[in-house]
Each structure stands twice: as C-alpha cells, then as structure tokens.
C-alpha cells in the first residue's frame, strides 16, 4: 500500500527506527496482529457502524471498570448518532452537579455537554475495587500503547489457555501480547456477551475489533479532519514547490 511505503519512507527519513518501544525491548512479547482498519491510510475514515458498535461494547462491558473522561455525549454525534440519539444516551446516565442553593451536590440526568462519568471517583477507589490494579481511563488508550489499536485488538482477542509455560499469579491472566505476559484484567469479552443493536454476530473477534476502532476514535477524534486537510495542504505545497523551482530556474537564468 502507498501509505505503508510512505510510513517506511518516513522511518528512513528519521534515520533508523529510533522510537523502538517497550514492547520489543521486553523480548518475549508477541507483536500485535495488524488489522487493515477502515481508518488506516491517508484517506481512511472511521467506519461509523463499527465505531457505534464499539461504543456499545464500551458501554455494556468496559464501562463498569474503565472511564472515558475526555468524551462528552455531544461527541457521539461525530460518529453518526443523531442529536436525539445522543440525548437519549446521555439521559441514561446521571451525573453529579451542584452545589444547589442550599449548598448540596445533587444528581441529574446527563446532558449533551456532560462528559461520560468515570466508574470510580478517583484512582485509589478504582484500585481498591480491582484488587490493586488500576483500570486506566480508555480515552487515550489507543495512543498510549505501542502498537495502538492493533495492540488493543490483539490484547482483547488474544487471551489463551496455552500459557507457554508462564505461571501467572492468582488474580492475573496470561496474555501473550501484554508486556510482562500476565495482566490483572480478566478476559473481558466472550462470544455473545452482548447483543449488537445492528444484529452483527457478537463474536469475541468482532467485539475486540469494534471496540478498538471506537477507542481509536476516542483517542484521535480529529483524525478525519486532519487527514483531509493534510492531503490538500500537501498537494498545495508540492505544486507550490514545483512552481517555485521553475521560478528559481527562470530568475537564475538571468545570471548567464
């Protein structure tokens, strides 16, 4: 693919793969399986249906432990929900507001401008409820891990009983894609754990992909705008460079 070769070229420009990450350094970690995402490439856009399914997975599975604090309900309109749908989703949640006239905090249904509330009031409470492990906020998960959405997808669908001789201590689970191999999150997805609104069969594979696509959007909501603007800017600059080169030749020709 053209995009892949640009990626290689960019890597060459920078020198040698200087940004080798933690995953490779650990040695025994399996590199993530790559997916040909709808949002890959210089013209890639988010697959609205997939991202919406991913939101459903987040809402019905991940949200019990993981926050998504940088996403407001109004943002859901960016992935194809109508204003009424987004309002209805917001209405299912309650958020804390206040203080009211008498100084008390109170709960009210969420509005479009509210951010998605986190399941725990703070990190310590989250750790206390999860055996000492902190379930990270997922807003930036796809950018905060080497391998990005491929890693998230591989991790979620990669739990296996074949531990290759790894002994995971009680309360941790083997996953070949996880740096360190044993993680505190039990396998979160099972076939048919949820029922997709659009009728897509909810296999572990499907849900892992969908939620990873969703989390790519939460991490980089301006990606479509960025790539589209980028294409125009780069074409403009290349034409400008061509014209300036010709102009330079023309002007310097006076020196003969």
């Amino acid at each position: 693919m053209v995009y892949r070769s640009i990626k290689v070229l960019a890597a060459a420009l920078v020198g040698l793969g200087l940004t080798t990450g933690a995953a490779l350094a650990a040695g025994e970690v399996k590199p993530p399986r790559t997916v040909d995402w709808h949002h890959s490439g210089p013209f890639g856009t988010y697959d609205r249906a997939q991202v919406q399914r991913g939101f459903q997975v987040y809402k019905e599975v991940c949200a019990s432990c993981h926050g998504l604090k940088y996403i407001a309900y109004r943002n859901l309109m960016e992935i194809g929900f109508s204003e009424d749908q987004a309002k209805a989703i917001a209405g299912e949640y309650t958020v804390e507001d206040g203080p009211d006239a008498s100084g008390d905090m109170f709960e009210r249904p969420a509005r479009l401008s509210d951010k998605i509330p986190s399941p725990f009031p703070n990190a310590n409470a989250a750790k206390a409820s999860n055996g000492g492990a902190y379930p990270i906020d997922l807003s930036l998960a796809a950018k905060a891990r080497v391998g990005g959405e491929d890693y998230l997808y591989s991790l979620l669908s990669g739990y296996t009983d074949d531990t290759h001789g790894h002994e995971c201590s009680t309360g941790t689970y083997y996953n070949p894609y996880f740096p360190g191999s044993c993680l505190a999150m039990p396998p979160p997805l099972l076939d048919d754990l949820i029922e997709y609104v659009d009728g897509t069969p909810a296999t572990t594979e499907q849900m892992s992909k969908d939620v990873s696509a969703f989390l790519t959007w939460t991490a980089e909501p301006k990606m479509e705008e960025r790539k589209q603007m980028g294409f125009k800017v780069i074409v403009f600059l290349i034409i400008m460079a061509g014209l300036l080169y010709a102009a330079k030749r023309r002007i310097w020709a006076r020196l003969h």
Partner: peptide, 15 residues
Amino acid sequence: RDFLVITAGAFVGVG
C-alpha cells in the same frame, strides 16, 4: 517579472 514568477508568488501569498 513574468507570469511564472507571479503565479509562484501568488501561491506563496495564498498559502
């Protein structure tokens, strides 16, 4: 100044 140079200049301006 010829047409080529003016066009190049216009691109710089628009950019």
